[in-house]
């Protein structure tokens, strides 16, 4: 029964949180008030842990919340509840898109969407860089970070290595430089 409630509550979060993982935070806050599954300070911890672990933020949050309340099975239940609405919604949209792919209006909608998406990813990139620079203390470290970033850029443009390789390289350099 408790699993059903857990599933249902996170199903609702998945259904109504539109956008990235951060969009789930208000809903989780609401859950912490409604049930005694986790406190607000635990929620803050969750956000911190989710942000620095691999995987989508929203999924990490659901798993963490589920485990905090009902152990491993709770984590699986909450995550499953969270992602299920996506499955329904996307399948319906995919069917619709396949049918109307050549429709002029659908085409012009995507013509408008593409530049907007490119800009939003661009702004994400700038935000990420400014977070890194804010974290870095001292002019010496900042200069090293900038040089390192330029080196990464050169490597990425020059060689078509797998991103996993670069991510591991980045982790390694992060440890080495501290």
């Amino acid at each position: 029964m408790i699993y059903l409630i857990l599933f249902w509550e996170f199903f609702k979060v998945g259904l109504f949180a539109v956008g990235g993982g951060l969009a789930t935070i208000p809903f989780l806050y609401n859950l912490s008030e409604k049930f005694n599954w986790f406190s607000v300070s635990e929620l803050t911890n969750m956000i911190a842990v989710s942000e620095s672990t691999p995987g989508p933020l929203g999924v990490n949050m659901a798993t963490y919340a589920g485990i905090q309340t009902h152990g491993f099975l709770g984590g699986v239940t909450a995550t499953f509840g969270l992602v299920l609405p996506s499955l329904f919604v996307i399948i319906v949209i995919s069917r619709f898109l396949n049918k109307f792919k050549e429709n002029q209006i659908i085409k012009s909608i995507f013509y408008g969407l593409r530049p907007a998406v490119a800009v939003m990813i661009c702004i994400f990139l700038v935000a990420l860089l400014s977070v890194v620079l804010k974290e870095t203390q001292g002019i010496y470290h900042i200069i090293i970070s900038i040089i390192l970033f330029l080196c990464y850029l050169g490597l990425v443009f020059r060689f078509k290595w797998h991103p996993i390789f670069f991510i591991i390289l980045g982790a390694f350099m992060g440890i080495l430089l501290e």
Binding site: V117, V132, F149, M173, G174, L177
Partner: peptide, 27 residues
């Protein structure tokens, strides 16, 4: 923590070529 800091510097570098490609195609 240092490893994560290092990774955060790599992601923008990985994204930039993709953004350029996207801009070229969408504009």
């Amino acid at each position: 923590q240092h490893a994560f800091k290092g990774i955060r510097l790599v992601i923008p570098a990985l994204l930039l070529p993709i953004i350029i490609k996207m801009l070229k195609k969408s504009l």
